[in-house]
């Protein structure tokens, strides 16, 4: 099973990597994003001097990390899945000797591996041009990575839910934009959560998205208590389980529909 998933991940990764320009373009894209955000915040800081409890150098670090992590939070296989449903390729995939979720999780890992490569490249290039705050301790660094890894099943199951909508509509493009927008706002890619209104901060405490970007970066910067990290870990595991059940139920329902009505 693990070997199969590694092979699937490798293949999905290579599928991106065959077009070398993919790597350069995505990385360039990320760096441009970083530059834009940093210029905007430099302008704001020159007016106010403080925002959301971050110093300017912390804010620069925040955006470089946020953009580096952003592909991991927003990429996935829902477009591939919707395409497979639309073209009937799904019939072939349902005849594999492993479940649809396992098959797509393998591919999702490959996709994320490519996101990690781009993230690291973005990080290294940015580190050359700007001074970055290093993780406050090695433990914090490990916890930061761990929280990001806990987010992988969560984004995967959301991807599967959005992909499953492809059974009912011809195009999931709109849903995909919506999913991306929700993650971008609630994870803190657009701006640190601490800058948002209080109700928004309260809400995001219970949603699983903050932990894709905002929380790991704050752990990196040493601004989260260990007791809170424990709460976050438990929260993510619960969300993972809930989303798994929803995704599985939804998918099985959709599949049942095509197996009784013939797609």
């Amino acid at each position: 099973m693990l070997k199969t998933m590694m092979q699937l991940a490798k293949m999905q990764f290579n599928q991106y990597n065959i077009y070398k320009s993919n790597f350069y373009l995505f990385t360039l894209n990320r760096i441009v994003e970083v530059i834009v955000y940093i210029f905007v915040w430099q302008a704001i800081y020159s007016q106010t001097g403080n925002a959301g409890g971050f110093t300017l150098s912390q804010m620069v670090t925040y955006y470089i990390l946020a953009i580096a992590f952003s592909s991991i939070a927003t990429w996935g296989i829902n477009e591939t899945m919707a395409h497979s449903i639309r073209t009937g390729q799904i019939n072939k995939e349902l005849l594999n000797p492993l479940t649809y979720f396992q098959y797509y999780f393998g591919m999702n890992l490959g996709e994320l591996a490519f996101a990690v490569v781009i993230g690291i490249a973005t990080f290294i290039i940015c580190a050359i041009f700007w001074e970055l705050a290093l993780p406050v301790s090695f433990l914090n660094f490990i916890l930061c990575i761990f929280i990001i890894i806990l987010g992988i099943p969560i984004t995967f199951f959301i991807q599967m839910i959005v992909g499953t909508i492809g059974f009912y509509t011809n195009s999931i493009w709109g849903m995909q934009i919506f999913r991306k927008a929700v993650i971008q706002i609630f994870s803190g890619i657009v701006a640190p959560i601490s800058l948002f209104p209080l109700w928004f901060q309260e809400l995001s405490k219970f949603l699983p998205f903050k932990e894709l970007i905002y929380t790991p970066i704050n752990i990196w910067l040493g601004q989260v208590d260990y007791s809170e990290i424990l709460f976050v870990i438990i929260k993510q595991i619960i969300w993972g389980a809930v989303l798994y059940i929803i995704a599985k139920k939804f998918f099985n329902h959709a599949i049942k529909n095509i197996t009784t009505n013939g797609g």
Binding site: K3, T4, Q7, L8, M11, N14, Q15, I18, T87, G88, Q89, N91, K92, L95, N96, P97, L98
Partner: peptide, 27 residues
């Protein structure tokens, strides 16, 4: 079982054929 459905393929479009065979071997 094994199955061939007309024009639908289990081979990965962008990759060398042997990669798809390796996947089948592992699956």
């Amino acid at each position: 079982i094994g199955a061939v459905f007309g024009q639908k393929t289990q081979l990965w479009w962008d990759l060398p054929v042997i990669e798809s065979f390796r996947l089948i071997k592992k699956m």
